[in-house]
């Protein structure tokens, strides 16, 4: 298949040069406007489940690139989490926290408060942070080298105040 949109980190562009006056700052609404309009149109084309899958995969690709470009390589889990917390906070993506982590078993419970995607959204009755799920799964895989499946269990959109994600290592890569 011919590809025109293969992602690379360079596609984020030179912000300083391109936006000398406006800079990096933008409004969350703009980000959400784009995400939810994407969802709308894609859902119309491929349906709800496929849309979720697309966003999960897109989040995963973002997570892979993010890990490669924003996280220093480390074998220390705590150090990895510290870096992640710091950079997510600095970029205004959310307040990332670990509730439980058992890397030997490959089981984690993670939360993101003030999430970029959903915090403050009206209740929809279903979890919508599929992009986050893929993003987190890729980050964990980047660190551990083991594929993870991440599922959102609590979401602002289901009436919770913090997004909670359950992550489990899979044997996919083995």
């Amino acid at each position: 298949m011919e590809r025109k949109y293969a992602f690379s980190w360079d596609l984020l562009g030179d912000i300083a040069e391109g936006r000398p006056y406006l800079g990096n700052a933008t409004r969350i609404e703009v980000y959400r406007l784009m995400q939810f309009t994407f969802k709308d149109i894609i859902e119309q084309h491929v349906g709800w489940e496929k849309t979720n899958e697309i966003f999960y995969q897109a989040g995963k690709l973002a997570g892979q690139e993010f890990y490669q470009n924003m996280i220093d390589k480390t074998d220390d889990f705590n150090n990895f989490i510290n870096q992640l917390q710091t950079v997510l906070k600095e970029l205004g993506m959310g307040i990332f926290r670990v509730e439980e982590a058992d890397m030997e078993k490959g089981e984690l419970t993670l939360t993101v408060a003030e999430d970029l995607d959903c915090s403050g959204l009206p209740e929809t009755g279903y979890e919508i942070c599929t992009y986050d799920e893929g993003f987190i799964a890729a980050l964990l895989e980047g660190f551990s080298g083991i594929p993870f499946v991440v599922k959102e269990t609590d979401c602002w959109c289901t009436g919770d105040r913090t997004c909670r994600f359950s992550a489990k290592a899979t044997n996919e890569g083995n």
Partner: peptide, 25 residues
């Protein structure tokens, strides 16, 4: 369950769990 109050309790639980994890670390 879901909803604002339960959500807030979950957020509190989440913070406490995170603190527990940090304390262990």
């Amino acid at each position: 369950g879901k909803g604002y109050v339960l959500g807030s309790l979950k957020a509190l639980q989440s913070s406490l769990r995170n603190l527990t994890w940090k304390t262990k670390a």
